[in-house]
Amino acid sequence: MQLPIKAILVFHVTARAGSISRAAEELGVTPSAVSQQIQLLESQFGVTLLTKAGRSIALTEAGERYFSMISDQIERIEEATATIRGFRSVTTLTIRATPTLSNKWLLPRLGRLLDRHPDLEVRLDGTNEPTDFNQEMVDLELRHGNGRWPGLFVEGLAEERFLPVCAPSYADPASLDAEDIPTHRLIHSVKSQAQWGRWFQLAEVTSESRWRRVLFDRSHMAIDAAVRGMGIALESTLMMQDELENGQLICPVRDPPDLRITTQWIVCPRDHLRQKKVRQFLEWLRDERDAWQALQRVNGA
């Protein structure tokens, strides 16, 4: 029997993409052409490889087994083909992350990912809008929220400590008590999971006077406002590591309450974890996360 190479390659792309329409877009053909190749392969094998799951597809047990058996070999063929053509193999990884995490945490570290994997081309989309993985060509998302998204792979990035911070020109380190804070201008990040009201409850502080506030819809704007001396912000040590290390921000409160939350989550469809580029990114990301956490322990944060 002649080996149905074209149908095998189409199946591999479809299984990896998790969608016939996304596979068709990647291959530059129509969805019906993709379906025809899958049906050809299934008829030759005498088994069903894919089933529909809403607007996406799911692998059958036979499909899962076949995909795992051929994936490494097809990746080697792709790499060998690129090499023999005289071109450096380039793989594009599309990551979506919140604007603050993109600017304050991912971007300063991204060079190390590119150095580790020089054949990896990275696209980083900074947005708070959650990804519709059935419709959008996104490999993995770092999503802000509570971590409850059924049907997806979800892993917490890191536990963050939220501290009141300000510029050293605004107040000296550990120069204020918690009950002094309501008398100052408070910088609010309105989408943050850690708000001043919760911090005051933990600190057992009540205030009858109306807060003086300045509000931002992005945490990175709140951090920058604090650096500029506009007031005191309540922000995450994950997001403002550089500003704390270089002295642009300090904690003006003596013995602040310990407020810790995991607000950033690694999210993607489980079948994306089969992709080599996603596994490479996750390995790097976890190494960076572990290094950050070790530094927090050293600093006593």
Score class of each variant (00 low, 15 high):
residue 134 N to H: 04
residue 108 P to G: 09
residue 60 T to R: 09
residue 115 D to W: 00
residue 166 C to F: 03
residue 252 P to M: 06
residue 51 T to S: 15
residue 163 L to M: 15
residue 187 I to D: 10
residue 121 E to Y: 01
residue 221 M to W: 14
residue 79 E to N: 06
residue 102 S to C: 03
residue 74 I to F: 13
residue 244 L to M: 12
residue 85 R to I: 07
residue 286 R to V: 04
residue 291 A to W: 04
residue 29 V to G: 02
residue 83 T to C: 06
residue 197 G to R: 02
residue 165 V to E: 14
residue 234 L to F: 08
residue 43 S to I: 00
residue 29 V to A: 02
residue 210 R to S: 13
residue 117 H to P: 00
residue 137 M to G: 07
residue 123 R to P: 00
residue 64 E to I: 00
residue 175 S to D: 11
residue 84 I to N: 14
residue 134 N to F: 01
residue 155 E to N: 04
residue 198 R to V: 03
residue 282 L to Y: 02
residue 45 F to N: 10
residue 194 A to N: 02
residue 205 V to T: 12
residue 137 M to I: 01
residue 113 L to K: 06
residue 129 E to D: 12
residue 292 W to Q: 11
residue 251 C to L: 05
residue 145 G to D: 13
residue 162 F to K: 05
residue 168 P to A: 04
residue 196 W to M: 05
residue 91 T to A: 08
residue 220 H to T: 04
residue 248 Q to H: 05
residue 173 P to E: 07
residue 2 Q to V: 01
residue 286 R to W: 11
residue 66 Y to C: 06
residue 12 H to D: 06
residue 131 T to D: 14
residue 68 S to H: 13
residue 115 D to G: 02
residue 88 R to M: 06
residue 19 S to W: 07
residue 123 R to T: 10
residue 289 R to G: 12
residue 175 S to Q: 04
residue 70 I to R: 08
residue 127 T to P: 02
residue 101 L to T: 04
residue 293 Q to H: 10
residue 273 L to V: 02
residue 36 Q to D: 13
residue 3 L to R: 08
residue 197 G to Y: 04
residue 46 G to S: 11
residue 140 L to S: 06
residue 22 R to A: 11
residue 11 F to N: 08
residue 217 D to W: 05
residue 102 S to G: 09
residue 207 S to V: 03
residue 65 R to P: 00
residue 79 E to F: 06
residue 56 S to F: 00
residue 69 M to K: 11
residue 297 R to Q: 14
residue 213 R to G: 00
residue 242 D to H: 10
residue 37 Q to R: 15
residue 245 E to A: 13
residue 229 G to C: 08
residue 197 G to N: 08
residue 67 F to C: 07
residue 92 T to M: 04
residue 158 A to N: 07
residue 12 H to A: 14
residue 14 T to S: 13
residue 66 Y to H: 09
residue 54 G to K: 02
residue 4 P to T: 03
residue 242 D to R: 14
residue 87 F to P: 01
residue 56 S to R: 09
residue 8 I to R: 05
residue 266 I to C: 07
residue 243 E to Y: 04
residue 253 V to K: 03
residue 117 H to L: 09
residue 77 I to G: 10
residue 76 R to N: 09
residue 111 G to H: 06
residue 170 Y to H: 10
residue 190 V to C: 07
residue 155 E to D: 12
residue 225 A to W: 02
residue 88 R to S: 15
residue 234 L to D: 09
residue 73 Q to D: 14
residue 189 S to L: 05
residue 15 A to F: 00
residue 7 A to C: 02
residue 237 T to N: 15
residue 32 S to T: 09
residue 240 M to P: 01
residue 218 R to K: 10
residue 137 M to Q: 13
residue 148 R to V: 10
residue 201 Q to L: 12
residue 267 V to A: 05
residue 13 V to S: 12
residue 212 R to C: 06
residue 16 R to N: 10
residue 199 W to A: 12
residue 6 K to A: 12
residue 62 A to Q: 12
residue 195 Q to C: 03
residue 164 P to N: 08
residue 138 V to K: 03
residue 243 E to S: 12
residue 211 W to H: 11
residue 119 D to G: 12
residue 267 V to Q: 10
residue 13 V to K: 12
residue 35 S to H: 07
residue 46 G to Y: 02
residue 161 R to C: 13
residue 32 S to A: 13
residue 144 H to S: 13
residue 73 Q to H: 07
residue 225 A to M: 04
residue 177 D to E: 15
residue 264 Q to H: 15
residue 114 L to R: 08
residue 263 T to I: 02
residue 30 T to R: 14
residue 262 T to I: 10
residue 228 R to N: 11
residue 42 E to S: 10
residue 84 I to R: 11
